[in-house]
Design a protein around this nucleic acid. Structure first.
Lengths: 332, 332
DNA sequence: AAAATTTATGAAATCGGTTTCTGTTTGGGA
DNA sequence: TCCCAAACAGAAACCGATTTCATAAATTTT
């Protein structure tokens, strides 16, 4: 391995001067710096990030924690899209990304400990925030941001779920739908916001609404099951699913019952990723801006790390209501 | 931060003894080790991975390189599933995962350099292997494994694409299909294997076959476009798509042309992820064993790192042929 | 009981950087 | 021409671990 000492030899300057030159510190003559840079190129110098982190106290390395039920994990398509954009932005700023683990096995260790071990500069949390281990991380000294979080311990980025859900439901009502079945995801901040939007849309026009049914995010089978169970009982004219995958499961169940969409029943969903666009019919949805959310998360986290930004704020990234084939107007 | 020196103080043993105790080296009295472990727990000692890596020359950290076209990246659903399992296994063995970047921006650096910087113990490569930067990594001193690679520079793990494709096509032929349109992914090892299987299935029965059409992996729009273009021209009775996403795009295009599946045209695809199961009709597919592939990659890479395994082999993980609703038997 | 091993512990060097602090030049002003 | 401040370069300490080697204590052998 080529070290800074080799480079010191090659260039004829001391290690300290070399270090300063490489880090663009002041106090190094331009021509000196130039010579050092040349020499570095010549002998193929690669700085050792671990050595640097050890002394300098920051690692240029961010942790990403997927805290979801086991079967899901990295395969959460929406979160992966968010991460993809987060990665793009942070890596353009010189950071690497390390995946934190649930550590379910022998070497289990608390997330905080894991972060300290690697001297991570900050962490992005995606998933479920009720666990003690996650809470512990949030209240630690490590800068954290999270998606869909509003617990007040750290900044969070979310879509405008309440508004867009209310708008979605209002429009459905306007199209003549009154019996709208909302299959929600499991309990969390986002779910509650959406339920609130659903309820308020009905409240606005002073109409009765069906009770919400709690299903699960990203569980196409469960959505199918509940569709088969509740459709006959409640006879909704429209069904709202918690996400694209669940919706697809639901749509199939409906077809299996001999129903066609949107003729017999209208369907809407959340997320609006590629899946909602390639199915047939294309799904009406509240399309979340995954890229925007990823960027907001990255920007905020870097501000916390680099500029000491310590404002615990809620950042809202606008979602987009997308009415497409899967919903139809009922004759009034 | 609590260091090994603090722990040395607390326990009354020297740093060297403490280090040995923590690493389970021989030459430390059992009672001594016990005292040290107790002390460690008491003062909340967390080892510093960077300091350790610096001296010990290995980081317990693996790199993962997604080398795909920009629009795709982490959102490649099949690769993410593979990574998910890879992560599960490697982290149970105490490794962390760091995402390597394409480094398209200012701080651009070759992958090899990036790995050396972080002293990564090994790398998993997913994607396209033709780039110089990737080749450079493969021939470097860093242990690497790759999915769907067969270039001979490093070990590769793949499905038995040739066999399963041939079987798929043979069965379609057996069901009376003769005009089978194969929309392939872009040129690479896997694509060629599948094309070979397709060709051989026809050769076996001495029948003419349609020319393959090169589309792109994970490009639902292009598949839709080609479906609209080639269906009228070639009038196939069955179409094979390169992956679930593309198939979904194709299926929609077919529906848009007023065709129904499988009555007017049968459809099959590769991957067979959750998407192929939740669409309607469910898609006949060559289902790749993402978990198995992830495990094989992890196992091999760890063997290379920990046991010096240097056998450049091709590991084949059996895929599964899954005939479902989207294909029908033609009357003979 | 003395000598030869074996076992347990610690001192000190090292990994590859950064940073503080000191000393030497250099240039500008009087 | 002389003095002082600013600019530049380097020596040495340090970050937190591991590892080699020397030494002391315990155990076995003769």
């Amino acid at each position: 391995m080529v070290t800074i000492y080799d480079l010191s030899q090659e260039s004829g300057f001391s290690p300290s001067t070399v270090s300063k030159a490489l880090n663009n510190y002041s106090g190094v003559n331009a021509s000196t710096r130039e010579k050092i840079l040349q020499a570095a190129k010549k002998i193929g110098y690669t700085p050792n990030a671990n050595a640097r982190a050890l002394k300098a106290k920051f690692s240029q390395n961010l942790g990403v924690l997927f805290y979801l039920r086991n079967s899901l994990d990295l395969t959460h398509y929406f979160f992966i899209q968010v991460l993809n954009e987060f990665k793009r932005l942070t890596e353009s700023r010189g950071y690497d990304i390390t995946l934190l683990s649930k550590g379910e096995d022998a070497g289990a260790q608390a997330f905080v400990k894991h972060c300290h071990m690697r001297q991570l500069d900050g962490v992005l949390i995606l998933g479920d925030y009720t666990s003690d281990l996650v809470q512990e991380l949030m209240i630690s000294d490590i800068p954290c941001v999270a998606i869909d979080y509003a617990g007040g311990l750290i900044p969070g980025v979310t879509s405008d779920n309440y508004e867009k859900t209310r708008e979605l439901v209002s429009r459905l009502i306007g199209m003549g739908h009154e019996r709208i079945l909302f299959l929600t995801g499991e309990f969390n901040f986002v779910t509650e916001e959406r339920k609130r939007g659903y309820a308020d849309a009905f409240r606005e026009v002073n109409k009765e609404r069906l009770p919400c049914v709690e299903a699960r995010y990203y569980d196409a089978d469960l959505s199918a099951e509940y569709t088969e169970k509740y459709y006959p009982a409640l006879k909704p004219t429209a069904i709202i699913y918690p996400d694209d995958f669940s919706a697809t499961g639901g749509v199939n169940a409906l077809r299996g019952m001999g129903l066609s969409i949107p003729d017999d029943v209208s369907v809407a969903t959340f997320d609006g990723g590629v899946l909602s666009r390639v199915t047939s019919p294309t799904l009406t949805c509240v399309r979340q801006n995954a890229e925007g959310i990823g960027r907001a998360l990255a920007t905020k986290l870097l501000a916390m790390i680099e500029n000491g930004d310590d404002k615990i704020e809620q950042i809202v990234v606008e979602a987009q209501l997308q009415f497409t084939e899967s919903c139809r107007r009922l004759k009034v």
